[in-house]
Nucleic acid binder design. Structure first.
Length: 328
RNA sequence: GGUGGGGUUCCCGAGUGGCCAAAGGGAACAGACUGUAAAUCUGUCGUCUUACGACUUCGGUGGUUCAAAUCCACCCCCCACCA
């Protein structure tokens, strides 16, 4: 049996990745069945379908979608956990002869899935707590000095102020007995091989995007659409379910801002403005990531992405041809 | 009309004679990124292509002083309260 390729649609938030995926899915309908798989760290939360821009019922009806909206707000997902879940979905697709279309803007998740990630076991929560507390008490530069003694190679790569990475390195060391550098070395070989292939499947990476200044308009109108679609009610319901803003699910852009608004700590205009600013800043970070980390085939956003208007084939004939012939 | 408070670099905001191109935060720009990644972190951020340098800024105009964002005078705006 022929190995189907893996299609990957990445790019900054709000550029229309999901819509493009559907256009592609529909254009491909004649060739082979497909399955859209989420590669976005926030669209996994089931209580924020609107705010995290998950595909709606209409979209979901158009073709199978996986890994969307399945996590509760208090639950945490990580790059490693995501990679395992997505790996299983890819295997599933292979069994069924479906062409997987990965869609999402979480660069690290895509990288972990396609390029592999160090096989570090889960670290006990007490160990994490311990370093977290120590970092609070001693400040990150002190822990960075400590890390420099234990794992100079990794310490040299990160900044003394980067408490998230410093505590993680220390957690891994005390939790597993090996340094992060050691763990990274365990999978370095595979990572190099996996750049353009995944378990023997060809990977076609498509980027959807626009320069930041042009993307702004899309981001702004998208926020208004979310608001009209009931973003506030969604946040309100989520708050009733989990009134802890520090819970993992609340960290999404828009969620956090709306929480402040609901608490009366920001007025509506401030909330909207912040939401927009943060979204824009995030899109910029993503652009930087994709510029430096991945080589994508950039494509314009599908501006008129109304249901049933998928004309991927006409817009990107060569790209479509490549995908289709790889799928056949 | 009276009294009090205030006008600082894109925004917020510190600064009350020299150590001030001016704290801090935000925004912006550039960047990093292997389990929190919609996260976390870095650099730049008045102008002069680089600066040990030069030049122009702190409502306006004059003045005091070796030296002013900081002191004085007048003026223009804003806010609060009283009328």
């Amino acid at each position: 049996m022929k190995k189907l390729p893996v299609i990957c649609i990445a790019g900054p938030t709000g550029a229309g990745k999901s819509a493009l995926a559907l256009e592609l899915a529909e254009a491909l309908a004649a060739e082979c069945p497909v399955c859209v798989i989420n590669a976005d760290s926030r669209q996994v939360y089931k209580d924020f379908p609107i705010i995290t821009a998950q595909p709606g019922p209409d979209e979901l009806a158009r073709c199978p979608h996986r890994l969307y909206g399945f996590l509760a707000i208090e639950e945490k997902i990580t790059a490693g956990a995501y990679a395992r879940l997505a790996e299983a979905e890819l295997a599933h697709c292979a069994e069924q002869g479906r062409l997987p279309i990965l869609v999402g803007g979480t660069g690290l998740y895509l990288k972990s899935l396609l390029g592999g990630i160090a096989p570090i076991p889960q670290i006990a929560p007490e160990v994490c707590r311990y370093w977290q507390d120590r970092c609070d008490a001693e400040a990150s530069p002190a822990l960075h000095r400590l890390l420099t003694e234990q794992d100079p190679a990794y310490a040299a790569k990160i900044h003394p102020n980067d408490r998230q990475r410093i505590t993680r390195a220390l957690e891994v060391l005390s939790g597993t007995g090996h340094t992060l550098s050691w763990w990274h070395a365990q999978q370095a070989e595979g990572a190099k091989l996996a750049q353009n292939a995944h378990n023997g499947h060809a990977v076609i990476k498509i980027g959807v995007g626009l320069p930041l200044n042009e993307l702004e308009t899309l981001l702004s109108t998208r926020i208004d659409k979310m608001l009209r679609a009931g973003a506030i009610a969604e946040a309100e319901a989520a708050r009733a379910l989990c009134p802890r803003p520090e819970a993992p699910g609340w960290s999404g852009i828009g969620c956090a801002e709306l929480y402040q608004y609901l608490e009366g700590r920001a007025n509506f205009a401030e909330c909207r403005e912040l939401w927009f600013r943060n979204t824009r800043a995030y899109a910029k970070r993503q652009l930087t990531w994709f510029k430096g980390q991945e080589k994508l085939e950039w494509v314009q956003p599908p501006l008129a992405s109304l249901p049933g208007q998928g004309n991927f084939k006409d817009k990107y004939p060569e790209l479509f041809h490549r995908v289709a012939s790889a799928a056949r």
